[in-house]
Amino acid sequence: MLPLELRDLRFSAGGHPIIRGISARLEAGPRSIILGPNGAGKSVLMRLCHGLLRPSGGEVIWHGAKGGDPRRRQAMVFQRPVMLRRSALANVIYGLKLAGHSPQECELRAQDVLEVVGLAQQASRPARVLSGGEQQRLALARAWALGPDVLFLDEPTANLDPAVTHEIESLINMIHAAGTKIIMTTHNLGQVRRLGDEVLFIDRGLLREQSPMERFFTRPASSEAETFIRGELP
C-alpha cells in the first residue's frame, strides 16, 4: 500500500484555494504528524489522502496498492466520532460487515478489539450514551478492527481531557506497534513530541517542511515553523 505520494495536490472550495500545491512522500513505518495552525488545511489534506474529498488538481498515489482497492486498506478516526444508534459492539460489527467479513468473523473480531481498547464491559451499551473518551476509544476500535495498513486520525484528542488523551495516545502507539502506519493531524506540540516520528508542517495550504521530529523542534527549516513553535511553547 505504501509509500503514499502526493503530487502537486490542490483543493479549492467555492473559489477559495485551501490546499495550494502540496507534494510529499509518506513512507511505511514512521508515525507522521501533520502539524499546523487552525485553518492551515490539515483536515482537508487528510480527507484528500483518505479519498473523502476529490482533489481540484494533482494526484494521490498509493504506490504499494498493487491493483487492490486502496480504500479498503485504510481507515479514519474523526475529531468527533459519529456513533450509530446501536450498541458499541454493533458499531464495530457495522464496519466489519461493510468490509465483507462473515457474521461469525465480525462478532469474534469485534469482541476482540473491544477487549483490547478496554470496552468489553460496555459492549452491549448503546454507543451514543458512552462518554466522550469511551466513544473515541470505540471509534479507534471500529477503525482498527478493519486491519488497515494506514490509519488516519484527525485531531483525535482535541475534545478530550488529559487523562483520556493519554489513553488514546497509548492505543495509537499500540496500533502503530502492531504494524499500522499512523498519519495524524494535531495542533498540539506536546502531542507531536509524544507521538511523532516525522512532522509535516502545513501553513496556509502549503507544506512548509517535512522533517524528523527531533530536527523539527531543534532546527526548523522554515521561519513559519519557527514562529509556530515559539508561539505555542509556554
Binding site: 483518505h50 473523502l52 481507515a75 474523526f78 459519529v82 457495522y94 464496519g95 461493510l98 468490509a99 478493519l146
Partner: peptide, 19 residues
C-alpha cells in the same frame, strides 16, 4: 452528520440510506 464516517467505512449510497 454521518456522511464522512459512513463513506470512510466504505458504505455505498444505498447501504448508507438504509443505515
Amino acid at each position: 452528520e454521518y456522511d464522512e464516517q459512513l463513506r470512510s467505512l466504505g458504505a455505498s449510497r444505498p447501504s448508507a440510506a438504509l443505515t
